[in-house]
Structures are given as structure tokens and as C-alpha cells.
Write a protein that binds this DNA or RNA. Structure first.
Length: 575
DNA sequence: TCGACGCTAAACAAGT
DNA sequence: CACTTGTTTAGCGTCG
């Protein structure tokens, strides 16, 4: 961690899951990783550019036209300068990274960024080539620079490769017109309208990449711009770098937008359809509810939209972009996914999607255990009677308003079977609580202890934007794979993420305040002592783990009103 | 192939 | 007796 290296996603996962780092450290780590990635990208770009230049030189080697000798000379010089400037640029970038504390470069550390320039680029050789070639040098490099120096700032970034970007954008621009807005014309217009809101000028500083020169006012900035960032080779090189950056970002954005669009389309169809198509495949066929309903019906029934948390892509399908949505066609996959990640649905998560589940007879992608746990944890006392659990199910999910015998049986079965559900004898009968120790105990083991599982997690998310480190830790803890930045674009995913964050915040507060919140010592486990404990002999490790209730602070007030505690007597006399 | 896991079905017991 | 609650077993499918 001291010596910055781009760590593998797996390593990142491990770090996150083992939680050996504090959130702050994680954040720093993430930023460092980003910086390093950027650095590597730059290097690659430089390499590419060099290769391109060489290629150009070679290609034009045959058809040399001894013309414009003067131009050749100047361009040759410019070329050399460009090399120098690129090196400078790299160093500047590195410096800025160092300045931000994102990168620490040891003195002895090999100068990463300078290598690509040095290798494969023998100046004399190139000069030779250049000499022979440059006459016909009408590459895009020059065509792209046919702007006034003042113009350059905007044209380079946004319009120097308009064909390319627009090509990328086209398919998506139509989906939501935001991208089409991003045209050079508009930008330059906006500059004219707001002359003092130059994108390269802000907070009295020139925002030219790697510059950061202080400019008292806008006029001095303009002067600086014209003098320091005139149309020269350095600016050109920098511009190209910026172009590359922008293109990559746009590409990424385009991908994400496409994904988002597909998801939204998918969800929209889903959320409206269910009502109009009541039980297309007769879910009521009493028996084999799950098989008929969740596996067969989806063909006509909307697939569960809840894929939100479905980051895994077990099904190899054509439209890779929408893998998460299409995987719902098969019930078992949903099941598998949900139980594997043991999705701890937070109140907020359900709240975000509650309308959908309430109205659409779509099977929620959560296991019974998860749902039961959620139901219990949502209750103020963190305990529910069986009937209350039933009510929660039917209230929250339209899907559970039919085939009661089946899923109720499943609920009872789960309650009895899973150690994490503890039956507690109460004044007015028995209530069910969640043994968080038990519940939390297993999942981390599952994940952290099983490398293959880690491997299976989507690897890219290790480089996601600096998410709240705590959030990531929470995700890891909850066995929820981290999401890529792309995935975060998904509204439902976002919901989940925010829900987790919310949950975590609550948990944090909970721990920080040392349970000194509204109900001190009101832990259900303390409130009533279980009279019935599942025969499971207590594992020695079971008692350990002060994390017990920490992650359960997901009680959402949003749902309090919704709960129908006919008679919530469980205001047990706790003290 | 095997074990773990979840879901469903069903039998059974005890209590209301 | 019917119903609810709770336990347990069995079979099946999926996944790693």
C-alpha cells in the first residue's frame, strides 16, 4: 500500500472484505488506484501516439514530395518539441498527482511514465524519417489544429474528433437526448454568452491540464491562455490527451447510458404489465408454486425487476449489456443469486421498489430467509409473530397474496430450519427474532473464505469510483458485490447502494452512540430470553462477534405506518 | 460427481 | 374438529 501499484480487483476485494483498512485508508487507496490507472492510461496513450506517428512516417515514406522545405524544417522541429512536451506533460501530471498526495514516488522508483517515450523512439531516427516524409504531412494533426489559439481550448476538447464521438454517441443520443447536447457549437456558444465562465478558468486558476497557473482575473487568464497555451505542439499534445480522456469518458458514458436505457425500458414494461396480465400462467395452481410461478410464468409475466442487486451474470446471453435483466427468466437463478448474496434487503431498498412489488406479482429475488429477516428487522421491536410475518409478506409483495399455503409453509419451514431465527416466548405467545450473530456469521465466511466466490465477483468494480469506503465495506460484509460505476447508474442499484449506505450510517450511529439511542438496551435478544433455542450446540465462535446488531439498524420509519400491528403487545417489559 | 443450499411438499404434533 | 403454529423429512434444482 505504501508503494502504489495497480492492484488486481481480487486484491481489492480481499482488502475490502477483510476490512483491514479504515474507510479513510480505503478511500486513499481507491484514489491512488485511480491515479495509477490514469497514469497507465496516459502511458498507453503516449505509446499509441508514438506508434501512430511512426506509422505515419513509414506510410508516407514512399511518397515523399520534396516540397515546402521550410515547412518540413519547422515541423521537424515541432515534432521534436512535441516529444519533449509530452514528457513534460507526463511529468506535470505526475507532479499534480503527487501534489494531491495521490501518488508517492520513491526516488529510486523507475520513472514509469518516461519509459514509453524513451523506448522505441530514437529521435535521430525519427528525425530522419520525418525529414523524408513531412512534405506530405497533412495528417489530422494539422487539420485538427486549424483553429485560432483562442479557439483551441474548446475545439480541441470537444470538436477535434467530432466524427468519432458522434459515432459513438449516435445510438444513444436518441435514447435520451443528453448526449446530443454535447456539441462543440453549444459549448462555444455558452462561452460567448458567459465569457467569464470559461471551462478552462475557475477559482482564479487556469484549468488547462497540468497548468494551474494563477490568473487574477479573466482578462489575465485570457492573456495567459493565449500566451502559454497557444497553438503549439505542446498544446496539441495536451489537447490530444484530453481528447483521449474525453473520448474514453464518453465511451463509458455511452455504454452506461445504453445499459441504463435498457434497464429502464425493461423495468417500465415490467412495472406496468403485471396489472394488466394477472396470472398469465395460473400461479394459483396450488402446488409447485415456485416452479410454475417463478420459472414458468415469467415468460409471460414480467421478469423480476429486482435484478437490481444481480451483479452476477451466470447466464451467458446475447445482449451482454442487459444480462442482469434477462437473467430473471429463470427462477432458480434468481434464487441462487439471492441466496448466494443473501441479500440483506434494507428497508430503503424495499421502500424504493415497494410500489413495484406491491403491485406486480413478481417474485422478489430474495430468499425466504432474507425476507423474513427483513420483516423482523423492520419491526420496532425487531420481533414478529408468525402471523405478522405473514402480513408483512402479503403487504409488501403482491406475489405473496396468492398461494398462501405454499409460501406460508415455506416461511414456517425457514423459521424452524435456520438457526438465525430464534423463537422467543412472549407474554402473548411466541415471536420470532433474528439472531444477527448467526446471520452475520455465515456470510462473511462464505465470501471471504471462499476464493472462488471472490473470483466470481465482477472484477471491474474494484476500480469503481471512490465509493464511500464504508459502503464498500458494508457491501463486502453483506456479501453484495461491489458495483462498477456503470452499475451504479442503474437506479435500482443505486437505490440499493444508497440503502446500504443508509443502513450503514444507521449502524455507525448505532455503534458510535453505543446503543445510547432512543431505546437503550432494547435489543430483542435482551428483551426476552429465548425459551426455545434450536438444538444446535453453540459453537464456541458463535458467542464471539460484537457485530451482532450492528448491521441491523435498517429500520425504516417509512414503513412504520405501513405495518399493521393489530396488537403490538410486544412492548415487553424490558429493562 | 458431490455437497451445500434453497424451495416446495407433506407429515406430524401441540396448542387454540 | 378446524385451524394455527412449529418441527421435521424428503425430493428436486442450482451452483461451485
Amino acid at each position: 500500500m505504501m508503494t502504489p501499484q495497480v492492484i488486481t480487483p481480487q486484491q481489492m476485494q480481499q482488502i475490502l472484505q477483510q476490512q483491514v483498512l479504515s474507510p479513510q485508508q480505503l478511500q486513499v487507496l481507491l484514489q491512488q488506484q485511480q491515479a495509477l490507472m490514469l497514469q497507465q492510461q496516459l502511458q498507453e496513450f503516449y505509446k499509441k501516439q508514438q506508434e501512430q506517428l511512426q506509422l505515419q512516417l513509414l506510410q508516407q515514406h514512399a511518397g515523399k514530395q520534396p516540397k515546402e522545405q521550410q515547412q518540413v524544417a519547422t515541423q521537424q522541429l515541432a515534432f521534436q518539441q512535441q516529444l519533449l512536451q509530452m514528457q513534460q506533460l507526463q511529468q506535470q501530471h505526475l507532479l499534480s498527482l503527487q501534489r494531491q498526495g495521490l501518488l508517492t514516488i520513491q526516488p529510486g522508483q523507475p520513472a514509469l511514465p518516461l519509459q514509453p517515450l524513451a523506448q522505441g523512439m530514437i529521435p535521430t531516427e525519427l528525425q530522419q524519417l520525418w525529414k523524408e516524409v513531412t512534405s506530405a504531412h497533412t495528417t489530422e494533426e494539422t487539420t485538427g489544429n486549424n483553429h485560432s489559439s483562442l479557439d483551441l481550448t474548446t475545439t480541441c476538447v470537444s470538436s477535434s474528433a467530432p466524427s468519432k464521438t458522434s459515432l459513438i454517441m449516435n445510438p444513444h443520443a436518441s435514447t435520451n437526448g443528453q448526449l446530443s447536447v454535447h456539441t462543440p457549437k453549444r459549448e462555444s456558444l455558452s462561452h460567448e454568452e458567459h465569457p467569464h465562465s470559461h471551462p478552462l478558468y475557475g477559482h482564479g486558476v487556469c484549468k488547462w491540464p497540468g497548468c494551474e497557473a494563477v490568473c487574477e482575473d479573466f482578462q489575465s487568464f485570457l492573456k495567459h491562455l493565449n500566451s502559454e497555451h497557444a497553438l503549439d505542439d505542446r498544446s496539441t499534445a495536451q489537447c490530444r490527451v484530453q481528447m483521449q480522456v474525453v473520448q474514453q469518458l464518453e465511451l463509458q458514458l455511452a455504454k452506461d447510458k445504453e445499459r441504463l436505457q435498457a434497464m429502464m425500458t425493461h423495468l417500465h414494461v415490467k412495472s406496468t404489465e403485471p396489472k394488466t396480465a394477472p396470472q398469465p400462467l395460473n400461479l394459483v395452481s396450488s402446488v409447485t408454486l415456485s416452479k410454475s410461478a417463478s420459472e414458468a410464468s415469467p415468460q409471460s409475466l414480467p421478469h423480476t425487476p429486482t435484478t437490481p442487486t444481480a451483479p452476477i451474470t451466470p447466464v451467458t446471453q446475447g445482449p451482454s449489456v442487459i444480462t442482469t435483466t434477462s437473467m430473471h427468466t429463470v427462477g432458480p437463478i434468481r434464487r441462487r443469486y439471492s441466496d448466494k448474496y443473501n441479500v440483506p434487503i434494507s428497508s430503503a431498498d424495499i421502500a424504493q421498489n415497494q410500489e413495484f412489488y406491491k403491485n406486480a406479482e413478481v417474485r422478489p429475488p430474495f430468499t425466504y430467509a432474507s425476507l423474513i429477516r427483513q420483516a423482523i428487522l423492520e419491526s420496532p421491536e425487531k420481533q414478529l409473530t408468525l402471523n405478522e410475518i405473514y402480513n408483512w409478506f402479503t403487504r409488501m409483495f403482491a406475489y405473496f397474496r396468492r398461494n398462501a399455503a405454499t409460501w406460508k409453509n415455506a416461511v414456517r419451514h425457514n423459521l424452524s430450519l435456520h438457526k438465525c431465527f430464534v423463537r422467543v416466548e412472549n407474554v402473548k405467545g411466541a415471536v420470532w427474532t433474528v439472531d444477527e450473530v448467526e446471520f452475520q456469521k455465515r456470510r462473511p465466511q462464505k465470501i471471504s473464505g471462499n476464493p472462488s466466490l471472490i473470483k466470481n465477483m465482477q472484477t471491474s468494480h474494484a476500480y469503481c469510483t471512490p465509493l464511500n469506503a464504508a459502503l464498500q465495506a458494508s457491501m463486502a460484509e453483506n456479501s453484495i458485490p461491489l458495483y462498477t460505476t456503470a452499475s451504479m447508474g442503474n437506479p435500482t442499484l443505486g437505490n440499493l447502494a444508497s440503502a446500504i449506505r443508509e443502513e450503514l450510517n444507521g449502524a455507525m450511529e448505532h455503534t458510535n452512540s453505543n446503543e445510547s439511542d432512543s431505546s437503550p438496551g432494547r435489543s430483542p435478544m435482551q428483551a426476552v430470553h429465548p425459551v426455545h433455542v434450536k438444538e444446535e450446540p453453540l459453537d464456541p465462535e458463535e458467542a464471539e462477534g460484537p457485530l451482532s446488531l450492528v448491521t441491523t439498524a435498517n429500520h425504516s420509519p417509512d414503513f412504520d405506518h405501513d405495518r399493521d400491528y393489530e396488537d403490538e403487545p410486544v412492548h415487553e417489559d424490558v429493562e
